[in-house]
């Protein structure tokens, strides 16, 4: 039974809700607005909210002057590469744990999870030295490898919680009908697993895109993704607020949109199935 709510209560909550939502969202909105201002208007007091001369010059300048596209592509390659590589390793593992569990499966899962809780700073020194010796510092491939390993536990866990919900009976039936293991995987399991794999892909691209420990410590000019590029605005360039805003808007827009689509999966992925 739905509770009857008076229109007045509903209106009150509408006002409060929108007000709170607006305040929380404001820094993002402000960044987007500032990105369309001239540098002078960006630092003007009193601040100009909507009535300023809208211009796209910051976007043009950010793109032309600072190799923005290169850093953007680095972000794309690193986040997509690490996620795909992670899926490649994790899908068989999660499949095995979900459909052929043994007594030790639970321990393996929890152990994998515990590797995620290892603070990155605890292995910073050896990874840095190993990368230096292997020539992997400031390379995309190096970052792909590190982020693959850093996110692998989350990928395995997310896939596992999805796969576990696929009814095992269907597999039994396929097996009874004489389907081989390969056929079972291709024709029965894959179609049912695609939604779970897709959400895992989405969430991990988001996590890898925003990762800001390894990307800051293991890259310099060449392989720096957007997290590191934006960090370079912390020095004198930080005075150029409009350009900082334009670069920031471009950096967060694609991920924000993906995030909005994946909000349900986020809960599941980041709590390791503890809250559904």
């Amino acid at each position: 039974m739905a509770r009857a709510v008076s229109t007045r209560t509903r209106l009150t909550f509408t006002v409060i809700g929108w007000l709170v939502g607006f305040v929380i969202f404001f820094p993002i909105l402000w960044t987007v607005l500032t990105s369309f201002k001239s540098e002078g208007a960006a630092i003007a007091t009193p601040p100009q909210f909507l009535f300023f001369e809208w211009t796209a010059e910051n976007y043009v300048e950010v793109n032309s002057r600072s190799d923005y596209l290169k850093h953007f592509m680095n972000s794309v390659v690193i986040s997509l590469g690490s996620t795909l590589l992670g899926l490649l390793i994790a899908i068989p593992a999660a499949w095995a744990m979900a459909f052929a569990p043994t007594k030790r499966t639970k321990d393996v899962l929890l152990w994998m999870l515990s590797t995620k809780m290892l603070p990155a700073v605890g292995v910073l020194v050896p990874i840095y030295l190993l990368f230096r010796d292997a020539g992997l510092l400031d390379t995309r491939i190096g970052l792909v490898l590190v982020l693959t390993m850093a996110n692998l536990p989350i990928i395995v866990w997310m896939l596992y919680t999805y796969f576990r919900e696929i009814p095992g009976d269907i597999l039994e039936a396929a097996r009874m009908d004489g389907a081989s293991l390969a056929k079972e995987i291709i024709y029965v399991l894959t179609p049912m697993a695609v939604p779970g794999i897709a959400s895992t892909l989405l969430l991990n691209i988001i996590l890898a895109w925003n990762e800001a420990f390894w990307t800051l410590n293991l890259t310099a000019a060449k392989a720096a993704p957007l997290t590191a590029f934006i960090a370079s605005y912390s020095s004198p360039e930080g005075l150029f607020w409009a350009k900082l805003s334009a670069a920031s808007t471009l950096a967060i827009a694609p991920i924000l949109i993906m995030g909005w689509f994946s909000q349900r999966q986020l809960v599941r992925g980041l709590t390791f199935g503890a809250v559904k």
């Binding site: 709510v5 209560t9 509903r10 209106l11 909550f13 509408t14 809700g17 929108w18 709170v20 939502g21 607006f22 929380i24 969202f25 820094p27 993002i28 402000w30 960044t31 988001i206 895109w209 925003n210 800001a212 800051l216 957007l226 997290t227 590191a228 934006i230 960090a231 605005y233 912390s234 930080g238 900082l244 805003s245 920031s248 950096a251 967060i252 991920i255 924000l256 993906m258 995030g259 909005w260 909000q263 986020l266």
Partner: peptide, 28 residues
């Protein structure tokens, strides 16, 4: 609570989570 535009407010509220740390730190 049920109110008008709940879905949109929800999207606005969760948005900061998707902003990369360096961007939020510098913007703030």
């Amino acid at each position: 609570q049920p109110f008008f535009g709940q879905g949109i407010v929800r999207l606005m509220v969760i948005a900061p989570f998707f902003v990369m740390p360096t961007v939020s730190a510098l913007v703030w």
